[in-house]
Structures are given as structure tokens and as C-alpha cells.
Write a protein that binds this DNA or RNA. Structure first.
Lengths: 238, 238
DNA sequence: CTACTGTATTCTGTTGACAGTTTTCAGTAA
DNA sequence: TTACTGAAAACTGTCAACAGAATACAGTAG
């Protein structure tokens, strides 16, 4: 009863439309560089073009779409150079989180991180990447959560979404994170010691090693990712 | 001749409206928390409400405005806690730039940075903050520019804009940067040595010392900033 | 068969209008 | 005077329609 009222008060049609379209974009529904027809989106969501345009502009501001005057809205296309830049920014934000966390981490949080470390170690000895990846993801997210800086966490999350737009090859699973658990151990050790500069340095180097892995993998042919098929035939270049 | 055509092709009415409104917001035209009337903005810029709404949504995504369903758009109000968070993120981005720059800085760039160092030193010995602040700003911007990561530079610039929304007191002039030139020298020395971790650490610490200065200054009464007078009488809380 | 030109279609940019909600404010009772 | 009630005004959310640009396409000349 009450919840429906609250929902309507907090989320307007346009705002849920934004979440909806963002989810659609991140799901891989559209190919990179593909053009999105405003009218088609409007009828798809049973709304008018007004809200659709507002949402598109907001998502363009977030770096998920690209608006070209008198041409329309296109899926953001990220080349390797841009992806590399994003990766470095990500490294910086992650390192910042680690640095902040080193100064405030609690025994509980450390214990939880060490649990994750063990879990990942076990997954690696069993060669089970399906077990490893979720733990890896949770490990990184924990650093951000525990750092106690909401703005930083949000910036990191937004950056990950932007990085998702680069799905030519590789980096699909696990978000392009490394599999080296020793680097993880080093970060946790620095956190435990309360050594903020070292934690920051190790966290930065950790993400950057993931970056070089990506750049490496990118040149290889690597057969098509089993994900969404590119539906529209001719993708016009913006 | 040609330039007007190019202008129309690249910038639609809505996009220039966005720049215009953003400049207006950053100029301090509106008080924090103040409500912006869509209709008033529309007639002010001689456009319809449609473009205004699109622009407002984009600026809300950037963190300059706040949209409340069925209430309207309000100037983003940033409290001290949020400002502190932003400051830490800024420190992280600046430190990231320093770290990246350490690995690629040229002799020319170093020479220019050292020139700035001397200029600031001279300004400080003359107690001339009016000379000091522009150099200080340029110094920080240089680190970002020379780092060679456009995305990082953009993220930093956006963050500064967001931080500008916190203009209760202090941090107005110079963007809340510290006046300690010795910290600047330390950063440049680390860059010159190609010591990336140290450059990152010193850059982070440098901005954070500016943060504590802000937090300190914020509690003091500090008579009203001579800037824009708050025009609308009762500012409703969002 | 290829390159070009002019027309038709599609889509974006922008506007004005209407419905529903919030806010304001005058009027009334305690 | 203060608190409450109700209507009126103002404003936001949404939509449909029109003008202009870009694209697609058929027709024509070389």
C-alpha cells in the first residue's frame, strides 16, 4: 500500500525509463556505434518521444550514448585507446579507495577480505574461474564500500559501466580483472598494516596489470563472444 | 562563413543552452538549494520548455542540479560531508595524474613546471596571493594536461565544477588549494626522478592538506563572500 | 555499368497544449 | 491569534503536431 505511493513520489516515469534503457544498453542489446531510433524506443516503452529524449541526453552525459546533431543518438563506441584511458582512471579510483580504507579499516572488514582471499585461492587451485570471478568482483567492491566514500563508490561504478561499452573482445567476463591472487594478498596486507601509501600503490598496480592483460588479449582474434548478436545490419559510423 | 556552418552542425540549440545554463550556475547566479523555474528559464533563453528540461536532466546527471519529481529542479546543495568526499576523490584523481605523468614527463614539461614553482615562490615572498593563485591553478592543471589522459582530465574538471556547488564559505578563491609551495616542489622532484609511487603519494597528500584547510576554515564565521547576492527570498528545502 | 541529380521519405529539433500535482492563500472556526 | 479547510493559481509531466535536416532511392546522363 504505502510502498506504491512512495515509489510514485520518488520515481517519475522518466527516471524509471532511464534505468530501463540503461539496463538495456548494458545488457548488450545494441551493438557499439548502432543508432537508436527515438520513435522506436518511444513505442517500445509506450511513452512519448519527450521522455526518451531526456533520458538519452542524461545517458549521453554518463558516456553510454553519443548525441550527434540532426543525426540522432548512437551507442557509444570506445576504441582501444579510450579503453586504456578508462582503465587508468579506474586504477586511480580503486587506489584511492584502498588508500582511504587503510586509514579506517576495521578488524571485521579485514576478516571478511581475508575470507574472500581464501575463497579465491580455493577457486584457483580448482581451476574454477566460475567460482573465482564473483569473489574477485566482491573483493573489489568491498574495497570501495568499506572506503566510506559514497561519491567515490559511485564514480567507480559509473566508470565500470562506461568501460562496459568496450566489449569488442575480451574483458567480458569478470570485468577484465586479473586472476593474480598474490596482488590481492599484498593489498590486504598493506591495509592490515595501515600503510596507506603502500595500499594505494599496490591497488593501482593491480588494476594496471589487468589493463595490460586486456591490451594483450585484444590483438588476438578470439572468436565471437557468445553474447548478444548484432541485430541491425549496417551500423553507420558517427 | 564556413565557421557558422560548422557551428550549426556541431552545436544544436539544446547543447549551447546547456553550456549557457552551466555557466550561469557556476557563476553563482543562483543560491544553493534554490529552485529553478522551467518556464522562467525558457523565456529567459527564448526557447521552449522541452530543451530546458533536457538540459536540466543532463546537468542533474553531472551533479550540478537536483531533480525532485513533481517539485522541480533545484540547485545542488552540498554539505560539508559531501564536500569532504569530493575532496578525497579529487585528491585521488590528481594523484593518478601525477602517477601517470611520472612515467612520461618530458624535460620541457619539467622545465615549465619548475618555472611555475619559481613564479609561485616569488609571489609568496611578496605576499601577493593574487599572483599566486593563477599560477597555482595552472600548476595543477598542467599535471592533468601533461598526464596524457583526456578522460582523467575531464573527470577532474567535472569534479571541480561539482565542488564549486559548495560555496557556503571558504574555498572560494583559488578553488581551495593550499599555499604550501614545498609540497609542489616535492611533487616535481618525484616527477623528475620518475618515481611514480612517490609522485602519486605526494600529490594525494597535497590535495588532502588542502581539504583539512577547508574543513578548518568552514567552521569559522567568515563574513559573507562579496559575490552574488542571494536573490530569491525563501529557499525551500528539497 | 557507373556517377550524378533531384525527389520522396524518414527522422530529429522544437514548439504549444493539456492533465495532474503541488503550492499558495483567503476564509472560517476555535 | 492560531490552526484548519477549501478553492484558486502555478508548475511539472506528458503528449501530439509541425518545420527542417538528413537519408534513401529512383531516374538520367555519360
Amino acid at each position: 500500500m504505502r510502498s506504491e505511493l512512495e515509489f510514485l513520489q520518488k520515481h517519475s516515469l522518466t527516471s524509471v525509463l532511464q534505468q530501463e534503457l540503461e539496463a538495456l544498453i548494458l545488457s548488450g542489446e545494441f551493438a557499439p556505434g548502432e543508432r537508436l531510433n527515438e520513435n522506436a524506443l518511444a513505442v517500445r516503452f509506450s511513452v512519448s518521444r519527450g521522455p526518451v529524449r531526456e533520458v538519452c541526453r542524461a545517458l549521453a552525459e554518463k558516456g553510454l550514448l553519443e548525441l550527434i546533431p540532426n543525426r540522432g543518438v548512437f551507442m557509444r563506441r570506445i576504441d582501444e585507446a579510450q579503453a586504456a584511458e578508462l582503465y587508468d582512471v579506474r586504477a586511480g579510483l580503486f587506489a584511492t579507495a584502498a588508500r582511504l580504507l587503510a586509514a579506517r579499516v576495521t578488524a571485521q572488514e579485514l576478516a571478511y577480505l581475508e575470507d574472500l582471499l581464501e575463497g579465491m585461492e580455493a577457486a584457483l587451485t580448482q581451476r574454477s574461474l566460475d567460482d573465482y570471478y564473483p569473489l574477485n568482483l566482491e573483493f573489489h567492491d568491498c574495497i570501495l564500500r568499506f572506503a566510506g566514500n559514497d561519491r567515490l563508490h559511485r564514480a567507480y561504478a559509473e566508470l565500470i559501466k562506461e568501460l562496459h561499452m568496450f566489449r569488442e573482445r575480451a574483458l567480458v567476463q569478470g570485468g577484465g580483472l586479473t586472476v593474480s591472487n598474490s596482488e590481492h594478498r599484498g593489498i590486504v596486507a598493506a591495509l592490515k598494516a595501515g600503510d596507506a601509501p603502500r595500499a594505494m600503490e599496490m591497488a593501482f598496480a593491480h588494476v594496471q596489470s589487468g589493463k595490460s592483460r586486456m591490451v594483450l588479449h585484444h590483438d588476438k582474434p578470439a572468436q565471437g563472444d557468445g553474447g548478444a548478436e548484432s541485430r541491425t545490419a549496417p551500423v553507420k559510423e558517427p
